[in-house]
Amino acid sequence: MKLNLKIWRQSDASASGKLVDYKVDINPEMSFLEMLDVLNEELARKGEDPVAFDHDCREGICGACSLYINGRPHGPMQTTTCQLHMRHFKDGETIIIEPWRAAAFPLLKDLVVDRSAFDRINHAGGFVSVNTGSAPDANEILIPKTESDEAFNSAACIGCGACVAACKNASAMLFVSAKISHLALLPQGQPERERRAENMVAQMDAEGFGACTNTGACSIECPKGISMSNIALMNRDFIFASLTSKPELKVSEGA
């Protein structure tokens, strides 16, 4: 099948970029990234700079691949770009491929953006403080199956950033709330629950993401189907923490 591609090309962060037209002739069984591989091989043969894009596992789990395809993150199906197959496009179709757009995701080259803001939000509190070796026996912590399943649903987030890309406000609330909910739903996460909500939200704001207006685009486009209910839970935790958290006591540890 023949396709017309319009791909965002930009040599580095400071350069100005534009959409460039390409044509490819490919097999409909290919994945979207294999289609780009074919294009890149052709470009390299012609001595043109191949299109840079992030990708790694190509199994839909590492969250490295991105791409805003025909106006939607990860394209027309609810999946990651690496799991999107060309049979979902029509012969002769024009496909517009853009990078994730957000102030908090600065562009590095072509379709590659810097998503380290997500890591920094996690540094602010996306963990349970438990040193290696200090854990009790695993079955001493009983967790009802339903709670555990719900926590899992939140933990299934792959950190790809599609939620930010889809949101008209470039808000990261779905991503942040998924992490906060995952730990808030489990007994292990309780001791730091308030701190976590306050600190992660503060870092999210500091990174320059937009505010949530509950349009729900994030959840619709999320390749892992992370639910909007996470956002409600995060809001509740944040409000509760803001109203009730106590300042840390200054204590001397003694000599």
């Binding site: 319009k6 025909n70 853009e98 757009r101 102030a103 008209k168 320059g208 505010a211 729900g216 685009a217």
Partner: peptide, 26 residues
């Protein structure tokens, strides 16, 4: 305030957008 912040959160918009959310929510 929020609208201003939100427009700053995406200084460079997309060339083409195919929305999946409801019109009123946007």
């Amino acid at each position: 305030f929020l609208t201003l912040r939100n427009s700053k959160a995406r200084p460079h918009g997309y060339a083409y957008v195919n929305n999946s959310s409801t019109w009123s929510s946007r």
